[in-house]
Design a binder for these strands. Sequence first.
DNA 1: GCCGATGCTGAAGATCCGCTGAAGACGGCA
DNA 2: TGCCGTCTTCAGCGGATCTTCAGCATCGGC
Lengths: 225, 225
Amino acid sequence: MRVLVVEDERRLAQALRLGLTAEGFTVDLAHDGLTGLARATDHAYDVIVLDIMLPGLNGYRVCSRLRAAGSDAGILMLTAKDGEWDEAEALDTGADDYLSKPFSFVVLVARLRALARRIGTRAPRRTVLGDLVVDSAARTCTRAGTGIALTPREFAVLDHLARRAGEAVSKREILEQVWDSGPDSDPNTVEVHISALRRKIDTPFGRAAVQTVRGAGYRLAADGG
Amino acid sequence: MRVLVVEDERRLAQALRLGLTAEGFTVDLAHDGLTGLARATDHAYDVIVLDIMLPGLNGYRVCSRLRAAGSDAGILMLTAKDGEWDEAEALDTGADDYLSKPFSFVVLVARLRALARRIGTRAPRRTVLGDLVVDSAARTCTRAGTGIALTPREFAVLDHLARRAGEAVSKREILEQVWDSGPDSDPNTVEVHISALRRKIDTPFGRAAVQTVRGAGYRLAADGG
DNA sequence: GCCGATGCTGAAGATCCGCTGAAGACGGCA
DNA sequence: TGCCGTCTTCAGCGGATCTTCAGCATCGGC
């Protein structure tokens, strides 16, 4: 399990690294907000321990920027016992949990484990393909930041293709998965919906994310077309 | 904050329910171990008040089975002053805290609050979505600073949507969470309440925070509409 | 270039889904 | 018990959405 600790007190940071490593975590450190943000966006961490008071960029900022960048790591914030602390703000910026200093190391480990467990079972929700974003949880789709309204069927088809981005998916499979219908249904139904989909997510943007694989079905380009 | 009280003395259980409800908790009762275990595994409680001496299945058993089932609710055990009581055993089975009878109600509330804080409910007390504020603890809702009176059901629906702000939530799920009803109940009930909600929090302000996701349910706009 | 197979697309009718007003049921409270 | 606010059920409306169909375009092999 990979953990990033963003903490400016070096003694504490080192102690955490030693302790967490002994508990079986793989630990990286950052000592200020900017470095933390950079590392977190470069590497895929399971959980991030984030101090609120940081030089450069404070914890709230790091947290909201991470979420804006689409990170789905678990984030646990550390609050100084006397510092100003706004629980609502923290959770609003996308933190998953928090712990006030001074804290028990055992509690920290327990919380990190619980957090990782929670994050792990959280269904993957956003698929990013170039400037095309498919968000299964929100049931939204955006191209270059522009929201696109899709009907239920259209979204279901797109979602299914997105989960196998880059692979060719047969009409048969789409029919079974999206329509949960028997193998004797009309593949033309799929064609009609694919057509509608292209008219919404490709044509207006001069792109071609939905590709026809003759005889084999369709493929959603991994780079968004 | 959701609390489950598992206590076989009905008078005491009722008194706890009244008192805790007045303190802003959402309280459910169970009068024996098996029922308590069933309820606790079915619903996500933040904390569970668990009597040791219970008909059917005693508190220790309930506690260890809950933990075995992966529950991460806070558990506070109640011990009779004369009953045999093994603190080590209690904590071994996964209890977080304990209190011996007779106890002061004020102390119980304080312990429950501390416990909930320690366990770290990730549910924000207040959810801020643009100028729409939903306060789960106070059970109030304001839009642009104006207080809005909601009926219990309306608030429960809004609260549930707010906890998943930005995500599409199915009518089915709303029915299960807000009504804790079976999957065969009428989704139209939800529609009626959604309609009432919109008439109160959206229409008068010319906004559209409550969005219909055709075929999938509803979504509360993360920016308040 | 021809041909069959395969895929695309516009139109139209049928269907499904969600919204809403009203009526009655229910429950708390005096 | 009667009142009042709230909840659920019902039925109809209106519109979005789905499917079917038919004709046309495109592709690949010859």
